[in-house]
Design a protein around this nucleic acid. Structure first.
Lengths: 187, 187
DNA sequence: TTTTGTAGAGTGATTAGTCAATCTACTCTA
DNA sequence: TAGAGTAGATTGACTAATCACTCTACAAAA
């Protein structure tokens, strides 16, 4: 079984980018950490920029696949919303480097170079869920984008706080966070 | 007027860092944009890293001075909290580049190189305000850090959404955001 | 005169990306 | 089935460019 070099490069790049930033991480160090040669890295990724972007897409897709795996088709809208919120926080806590990388990209100029369609596909499901909840009068009639933005920012806030706590102290905080959020978007 | 040049360097660095990132912005371009020589930049800032950090501190202090100027000593705690929240969003919308720079630093490895004391001083006032509100039973008895984190993340979320709207459509959204936040932290 | 500010050419180190050579695994053919 | 052919994977030395930072000279103030 041939080693998946591309995955090794992803893993090393993630680790180094989060620790040292894009600037502080030369491609040579990524290759070395991944146990491949300099040339191999550029065989899989045409440029460093491409590696940065593809890593972002891969990580984001992993998160989305995880969330999708937790949602059952016959769950009610309330349950779906709750699951998306809670499992997002859990995933972030379990994959802190990956979550941190998403944020790092999101607040960097690289985000503007990731194609619109990729970004759009990633939020479509969530926006549809919010629309459904609005249509069923489950949540207040606020702009969908606003509800989404509030959810994302609150998930980040709760994650940041929970991450500072011991593992066994986290659940009550996350649950409290969700009920506060729920109260906020329902009448 | 030597202060002029330092300020010009700050202005140019802010603009370029936000547009191209730290990596994508050579010191030579900052100097050129500021209309000073390469050497002059290094006369004011020993290293590029120092420039990045001092710019962050300067921007953060500007925000804090602005907020402090809006708070009157005899305002009630409710009023103070409301003012901090609302004026933070207003300031962010009026100084989007600066707000973006704060975020960029916050989600980058540079944050760990900014001394603890600088960071601590900057939030002390806000934490004290939350403690006061708790002591007076105005808000729920939640951990101070949690309330602070939720406020910060919600301010960011509301800012991000409001920034996409026409200037005259923003106020109602921001006000709604605040009342949602207030409902969230009060019984 | 001394100090401070300013310029800009110069430098050594670093880096992203290239390239020619080799290896590996697989397929096709006789 | 042996052997030739082949496409892709892998290597690492190499390069052209860039960058952070230095140095020297000079000007303006103090």
């Amino acid at each position: 079984m041939p080693m998946d070099k591309q995955q090794q490069i992803f893993d090393s790049a993630l680790k180094l980018f989060v620790e040292f930033g894009f600037h502080g991480t030369p491609t040579s160090k990524i290759a070395k950490e991944a146990g491949v040669s300099n040339g191999t890295l550029f065989h899989y990724f045409g440029t460093k920029e491409e590696l940065i972007k593809e890593l972002y897409v891969a990580v984001k897709e992993e998160l989305n696949r995880f969330l999708a795996s937790k949602i059952k088709a016959n769950d009610s809208v309330e349950i779906k919303l709750k699951k998306v919120y809670l499992y997002s926080v859990y995933w972030a806590l379990e994959h802190q480097e990956k979550f941190h990388y998403i944020q790092q990209i999101h607040f960097s100029p690289h985000i503007s170079q990731i194609s619109e369609s990729v970004l759009h596909d990633q939020v479509q499901t969530h926006l549809a869920l919010i629309d459904e909840a609005k249509a069923q009068n489950i949540i207040k009639n606020l702009p969908t984008d606003l509800v989404y933005m509030l959810a994302m920012s609150q998930i980040t806030g709760i994650y940041n706080y929970a991450a500072t706590l011991a593992v066994n102290k986290r659940k009550p905080v996350i649950d409290t966070g969700y009920s506060m959020f729920w109260d906020m978007i329902t009448e």
